[in-house]
């Protein structure tokens, strides 16, 4: 369980997060939505201690992560898998070594076991043959999938997705969404999906947190979202209305995968 309590954060004097309180419950997939620059990614980075709040605190499984010594924080972070916006694969290594990297750094497994684990992870993202390829040789979508394989290599309890579908074509986005959904079940993880893509939200999330003006403006389940009467949220969702409208206010999931996706 991740708990954010009254987080404030500003950069160079500009406040970005102005008092955010949010819970990520065990086993759920929470989508954090909001406009570009609303501080979604900033909030996500607070959850793993990559950013420290100016005030407020972050509890992971009841522990205030900003009070931990650095080596304790490092240990805690091994429970997390993070998919960064651009994938953040190490371009000095091929795909296999990228996925193997956390295993080689932290597990005492033999090279043969590591190889088996890596291939299993690459299989889960449906890219069994890309091992020898270097990141620049892969398409954007493939890079994200290899990065996802790396994120799950250590079998984390939490997976954070930073804009998993941005910059991808609709079809690839659907593939990624389905992966997020199936990994949540298969690996029994708690997921946080930072996105402004409503289609992604409706496919993957159990609950939604909407950030606006630096605050958590609205939190609720997908059915609640359809009933919601908040103008700001409705306007944000309307911008994606193609998906929502056709998906139906019922939030009928099987429907949504055939709905045309709006590309940005």
């Amino acid at each position: 369980m991740i708990q954010l309590r009254d987080i404030y954060k500003s950069f160079g004097g500009t406040p970005v997060i102005k008092g955010a309180t949010l819970d990520v419950k065990e086993g759920e997939t929470l989508a954090v939505i909001g406009r570009s620059g609303s501080g979604k990614s900033v909030l996500m980075k607070h959850m793993i201690g990559l950013l420290k709040p100016d005030s407020g605190y972050v509890l992971v499984d009841g522990v205030d992560i900003n009070k931990l010594a650095y080596h304790e924080l490092q240990k805690l972070r091994r429970n997390f898998g993070v998919l960064f916006q651009g994938g953040a694969l190490f371009d000095s290594m091929n795909s296999f070594d990228n996925v193997a990297f956390p295993l080689r750094s932290f597990s005492k497994k033999s090279e043969a076991d590591i190889k088996r684990d890596v291939l299993e992870c690459l299989d889960m993202v449906e890219l069994p043959d890309v091992g020898p390829k270097f990141p620049p040789e892969l398409s954007g979508g493939m890079q994200k999938r290899v990065a996802l394989a790396r994120a799950i290599a250590m079998r984390p309890r939490y997976i954070m997705y930073d804009e998993p579908t941005s910059g991808l074509d609709p079809e690839t986005s659907n593939v990624i969404d389905q992966m997020i959904k199936s990994l949540a079940v298969r690996l029994n993880v708690t997921s946080v999906v930072v996105t402004h893509d409503m289609h992604s939200v409706l496919t993957t999330a159990d609950r939604v947190a909407f950030i606006n003006e630096g605050r958590i403006w609205w939190v609720g389940s997908i059915p609640d979202l359809h009933e919601c009467a908040d103008d700001t949220l409705i306007n944000f969702v309307r911008a994606n209305e193609y998906q929502i409208g056709a998906g139906g206010a019922s939030g009928n999931r099987p429907h949504q995968s055939v709905v045309p996706r709006q590309t940005n």
Binding site: K75, V82, A88, L89, F90, S105
Partner: peptide, 17 residues
Amino acid sequence: TMRVTEQIDALEAMGLN
């Protein structure tokens, strides 16, 4: 380049120094 493409964040997020 590692910093701007978040590779350094990725290292840290993995629990590496």
